[in-house]
Design a protein around this nucleic acid. Sequence first.
DNA 1: CGAATCCTTGATTTCTTTCAAACGCTGTGG
DNA 2: CCACAGCGTTTGAAAGAAATCAAGGATTCG
Lengths: 201, 201
Amino acid sequence: MKIQRGRPLHKDRHVYSAGEEFKSVFAVRSGSIKSYTVSNDGQEQVTGFHLPGEIFGMDGIAHNHYTNSALAMETAAVCEIPFSKLQDLSIAIPSLQRHFFQLMSKEITNDQQLITLLSKNSAEERVATLLLSISNRNLRRQLSGTRFRLPMSRADIGNYLGLTVETVSRVFGRFQKQDMLKVDKKEIEVLDFDKLRALAN
Amino acid sequence: MKIQRGRPLHKDRHVYSAGEEFKSVFAVRSGSIKSYTVSNDGQEQVTGFHLPGEIFGMDGIAHNHYTNSALAMETAAVCEIPFSKLQDLSIAIPSLQRHFFQLMSKEITNDQQLITLLSKNSAEERVATLLLSISNRNLRRQLSGTRFRLPMSRADIGNYLGLTVETVSRVFGRFQKQDMLKVDKKEIEVLDFDKLRALAN
DNA sequence: CGAATCCTTGATTTCTTTCAAACGCTGTGG
DNA sequence: CCACAGCGTTTGAAAGAAATCAAGGATTCG
């Protein structure tokens, strides 16, 4: 498959912006990307964080234009995967089509889990769930699930989880006081996974 | 396409249950359906309401099993659309494949709008947005967007919007006091669309 | 009719937000 | 090299929105 080589993207550079014509989906090679939408009243809603190995950009399929914007939270590299190629190929290779359906469906179930989280859970449960998610995704990347670096700011975390920056900061504070986490700026060390899982449920 | 004729489904009957093998998606013919998941701690999260003409059941594609359950909120009829047929056909008819991709992508953007709603908006804004959504969907069905019947209970509304029943009830009360709505049990009459839109933004 | 369920309303509590201010990095220019 | 501006983060105090607790009223259905 002809896939564009990922040239490095600097911090705060967009991969694509909402409204642009949808042509491709993307795979993260290194660094980290956030997706967000801007609502009609101008405020930003972070809809996802994308780590190396993950695919993003599928929101554009419905309307032929991206509905999200995607930008690098730190220096990153992404692979562009032209959707037309993918469509042609998925007709030749039915398993690819199925795979792609699954990716989209997974996106739906992910979003629905986030909906539940926002709808039913407290600030502490939301933050715990995000931490556990990042920990698990790091494990899948052969990295430590115990010690890792959060690529996003407190503001992004709050935005994603429907909380204010202040609340996020206080939750980190409480987690440290309970000896559940060690937080040093963006470096996280999980000291008590059972407690974290119990909160994240 | 061989599509199963929709036999009537009684109130509170399941179309499918979470965990069942994914075989089909469904189209609502009449009545109304709600989708919901049950989180590991046993509580229900309503993930969507489906009105006549709408498709549901696509959450099952990722894992070959449905992640949601779907049940009739009132007597309803649904069409079963076997997914395997759909796959075969979409190889023969690329436009169908594209159409189906679009459906799934639309589901994603819908969910993301709900995420924003839950994350950023007040109780009144959430309820107003749901009312406007139902109004618009009724218009698409050639029905009145001004006077309509809510097929779901207050509890389902609250569950879907991340609010308690009491809050939903109070919001309806306030909307009536402001002469924005006329509420008679499940019958809704919108008296001031501008106000409703302003709230829903 | 009567039981069960759903909806409404009120009083109180709780959690999160808001407002305010200070701290600590980071980078820049004098 | 140091001073200082700017941003992200933390912390505190007060306010606010929705949840919880509690009870009564209305509908539905057998």
